[in-house]
Design a protein around this nucleic acid. Structure first.
Lengths: 192, 192
DNA sequence: GAAATTCTTGTATGAGCGTTCAAGTTTTTG
DNA sequence: CAAAAACTTGAACGCTCATACAAGAATTTC
């Protein structure tokens, strides 16, 4: 299975290089050359593994969406009771593995390009639906029907906004602090 | 002054065409040809008026930032009392002249490209500072110092998030409804 | 260890783009 | 109405970049 190992290794290296390169230059301006240099490989090898630039970007976003999904499941599994489940779902978005400048920047580029790239649009739509129903479910035992939808929308808008900001500033990011802020925001939303 | 009139007219036409074209294709993929066609002009004429594509985009964002500034001043002028001033500052972001799919989409593209285009970065930095200090000032008479900064950050993140969503869905947008949501969010933030 | 498969890359190609320019048209000026 | 200024554009230029390809290196297989 060493064959499989090389392939997976290159996928990882190239995706990580893509994330760094996108953070530096943006989705549109980044070139295959630049990503290749960042990964210590050649532009042609990216084509060998991913086919086209678009597919590389798609694979990169799949990776990040996978990290979110995994963090969500992990945190939900440890949560006991409705309130803890909501906090877990929110905190997953600010997990150490996800809430870094690099990754937020890539996510913002994803937001900007998804509407114009069908393959990305599809990913985006699916993820959005997943997150929406997750939060709707988490809020169901906590709020009466009349307030639920507004709370869900506010929560998601706030999280997106925090990511947006995170993508735009410099310096390292404190994910743990963000999770504390998030918990406070949830408390405010639930009015307790 | 008919000379001046043609120039201003073309500026308006081209900027409006740019907004529509960017909404359709995105900042990166849109071509000068496409914008020109949208405006019923030639690509060369855009160069005559704006010099480069980058400058056209800059002018377009200056226009939108101007709309926000104007809406803010207009609403602040009519507001009486600290609470009304805060509501006015928030509502300006959802003014009919600003809160449309088209304009939110352009704004999102601006967010995505500003970090990598110095002229846009500058605009972005200036606007961000303006808005931040405006909200800080509006909150000063309403909250004790300990809660103020968190409320400001939450408010701005929420507004950005709402714009982000607005940019990504389809169909017309109800600005008046958004202003009502915004007022409710402000009330929640102030815990009343 | 030889054959087959997988991996890697330098180079070539071709498309698409922003920008320039010169030549023409329209509008303003005096 | 004639000279000047402002406006408009088709066509051409030059450049960048993603992608394709072929030839060779490394690794796996049997």
């Amino acid at each position: 299975m060493a064959r499989r190992r090389i392939r997976d290794l290159r996928h990882d290296e190239l995706i990580e290089a893509t994330i760094r390169a996108i953070r530096r230059s943006g989705f549109a301006a980044v070139t295959m050359q630049e990503i290749a240099r960042e990964a210590g490989a050649s532009a042609a090898s990216i084509n060998y593994y991913f086919g086209t630039k678009e597919r590389l970007l798609e694979a990169t976003m799949r990776r990040l969406l996978g990290v979110l999904r995994e963090a969500t499941l992990r945190r939900l599994a440890e949560a006991e009771g409705p309130r803890a489940r909501l906090d877990a779902a929110v905190a997953a978005n600010f997990d150490d593995a996800l809430f870094t400048r690099e990754r937020c920047a890539v996510w913002m580029q994803f937001w900007a390009f998804a509407p114009h790239v069908p393959r990305l649009a599809r990913l985006h739509r699916i993820n959005r639906a997943r997150v929406r129903s997750l939060f709707a479910a988490a809020l169901r035992p906590l709020l009466p029907e009349g307030e639920r939808e507004r709370a869900r929308a506010a929560l998601q808008a706030w999280m997106d906004g925090v990511w947006l900001e995170a993508a735009q500033e410099e310096g390292p990011l404190d994910a743990a602090a963000a999770r504390r802020e998030a918990a406070a925001f949830v408390a405010m939303t639930l009015r307790d």
